[in-house]
Design a protein around this nucleic acid. Structure first.
Lengths: 148, 148
DNA sequence: CGTATACATTTGTATATACAATTGTTGTAA
DNA sequence: TTACAACAATTGTATATACAAATGTATACG
């Protein structure tokens, strides 16, 4: 992946800018791979993320604030995101009996079943994205990411 | 930046998944910094990118396909993106006299003037984002990004 | 010459997201 | 008890983006 070639410039780019642009190009690639992987299941990355959180609750219901806390990319509108999962039959929602301001959201059997398939697709996508990295390089990458 | 802490999980995450999630968290941070930096100028990152491309043309007009080729993040709808720049008085658009299928897009004086200010804001944002990196680490990062 | 094909952009439509305002609920302090 | 602040979720609205279809223009070929 050559930055200058991809954005078709002949100008030299300052290292700071180049790093950020490079990052964005990688981001494009990753987003594309992941959305392709999830497309057959008709869920967005965000929806997939919420499903995983719900499963991680192990039956214990989650409310919207909890979901928001745990999401990789925070969203201003988790309500509508959960709406999508409901309409697909992947999640349930009911108001919390002890505190009626809150809602209790759980994953359905069907949601869990589909999620398993999505997991496989995601793992495959991750392997594809990271195919040129060995373990040491991945660790190096994580170490560098810690500096952000 | 600790991944497990941010997404509030106690489960251990496979290195592949962890790397991708870590990447996304960094992406969130970068996006936020940049959109904050550009907010005062009321342009999106995409619009900023197009303005820079137009300036890089040095007077020579660009058409939509050229813009699309050179954009960091390709868009399906560059027409409407340019619309925004027009309405702000940052760009001009006219149909190409030699080939009327094409359009000729140029940056205005006002656009150049504003772009200079945006550049400063962006440089500042970049420095902030990368403040914990030294030159060697940045090069390391770029090398690793090449593997994607 | 007329027709098909490729090209460049624009428009339509559905969906996604950000942000602000609103609704309903709970806890609390006068 | 009532008034008020804090909380949790929802709704409204504007804007952004993806994707497909449509429009207009140029080129090629029989």
């Amino acid at each position: 992946m050559n930055v200058e070639e991809i954005i078709k410039t002949d100008q030299s780019i300052a290292l700071n800018s180049r790093t950020i642009i490079h990052f964005m190009l990688v981001n494009n690639k990753i987003s594309e791979e992941i959305s392709t992987a999830l497309k057959p299941y008709d869920v967005s990355l965000q929806q997939f993320n919420v499903l995983r959180i719900l499963r991680g609750q192990k039956g214990k219901p989650a409310n919207l604030s909890t979901l928001n806390d745990r999401m990789v990319t925070k969203m201003s509108n988790t309500t509508r995101l959960v709406d999508k999962l409901l309409s697909k039959g992947y999640a349930n929602r009911k108001t919390c009996p002890s505190n009626r301001r809150k809602v209790e959201i759980t994953i359905t059997k069907r949601g869990e079943k589909e999620l398993k398939k999505m997991d496989l697709a995601m793992n495959k996508a991750e392997r594809k994205i990271l195919q040129n990295f060995n373990q040491k390089e991945l660790e190096q990458l994580n170490t560098l990411f810690n500096k952000f």
